[in-house]
Design a protein around this nucleic acid. Structure first.
Lengths: 221, 221
DNA sequence: CCTACCGATCGGTAGG
DNA sequence: CCTACCGATCGGTAGG
């Protein structure tokens, strides 16, 4: 075992930075948006959960929607960063796809509170904010599709339709936000490992069947 | 071509039955719940969309939550019926799994308005209603898991973990409700066919590799 | 199935 | 960052 892999305990999640009171309000809003939804959450509930008066919300944020936007943008950026870092961590399409799906699914489990707001509260954004979020989502989608296409090009993957396969790969991770429970039997890492295996099956990758020998290095663990 | 398969045009979806005014209210509620969510929908919006006065909602329904429950229960029952009918339509685990995922994904695309309420508005139900819905969901889950386990038993499927594989198979269909757009490039049938192929990959089914020759009958199309 | 209305709560602001 | 308050809207009901 190396010193910094595998069985390390749950790392501290990166939370909202900057002014602590502002961060407490964002945390309170995140918790409530995640379980009750944006429209099921009042600004008074957010304030109360942060231990402040109802009006304190408007000291730090102009509107309730702007709070949602901050949370959604940060969350989308985190998810995108996870995918880009996974791609950078490996050299071949099979290695990259495995890392993407493992880390994307793990992120949706570990950060399921945030991920639920990210994936299921987009309809409450203003059109302008929705456009900014949509750009981040396209970036993530295109990054995954690029790896799928590269794997097909190299003969690593056997895929009938790259578009529906890309959607399916993303769906596996995204839907984790819906069903994952912190008190359930599965750790985020376990979900990630299982889903990474399933991802390689989805793209028809059988180790040793590709044209490129250097795949094996990225598959060894 | 046989007379009643394949290219038949979109069939008329089964809608709410019984009293027409009541059905109009349920349709109006469904449309609004689907795009704005339960908490983002007022009873006045429902009434207006049905062409009635605000109080008319309470002629046919006791509370707003009861409207959601009716829609959610009917929708969950439809989805369960789709899965059970798919199982009945085939004799072998590979045939059954293909039919399940094809029809489950097709249903989530064709009925994406209803499916969004079914999959994403459960948190707004009363605890009693949530329990009834949970039983329908367990029934669906267990039916799919049974086919996965039967396929493993027969040697048709090679699966590392039946539980996470079952969750993944259901996730593929459920997440269709989130991303499917009626004005997009894909027909519900196309989504279903693509996803059925992916499902057999997920369970490690390679035609001809199983111990049972009669699989081929269910795979021929 | 309608008009008219109930108390409660909403997002947001004035003023300090 | 608080108290106090604004008009608007909410789910639901009385009475016909």
């Amino acid at each position: 075992m190396t010193s910094d892999d595998g069985a390390r305990p749950q790392r501290t999640d990166r939370r909202f930075t900057g002014d602590p009171t502002r961060a407490r309000l964002l945390e309170a809003a995140l918790d409530s948006f995640s379980t009750k939804g944006f429209h099921g959450t009042s600004t008074r509930m957010i304030a109360a959960r942060a231990g402040l008066s109802p009006a304190a919300v408007y000291v730090h944020h102009r509107t309730k929607e702007e709070i949602l936007f901050q949370i959604s943008r940060d969350g989308h950026q985190e998810a995108l960063d996870v995918v880009l870092a996974a791609i950078d961590s490996e050299a071949t399409p099979p290695g990259r796809l495995r890392a993407i799906v493992r880390d994307f699914a793990t992120w949706h489990a570990r950060r399921h509170t945030l991920a639920r707001v990210v994936q299921y509260e987009m309809a409450a954004l203003t059109p302008e904010h929705a456009d900014l979020i949509a750009a981040l989502r396209r970036h993530t989608h295109n990054a995954v599709r690029g790896v799928v296409l590269a794997g097909i090009e190299r003969g690593d993957f056997t895929v009938r339709d790259p578009e529906s396969t890309t959607v399916a790969l993303l769906s596996l991770g995204i839907d984790v936000a819906r069903w994952y429970r912190a008190d359930g039997a599965w750790t985020p890492q376990r979900v990630g490992e299982d889903y990474a295996e399933l991802a390689l099956r989805l793209v028809g990758h059988s180790p040793g069947a590709s044209r490129n020998q250097d795949d094996e290095a990225s598959l060894a663990r």
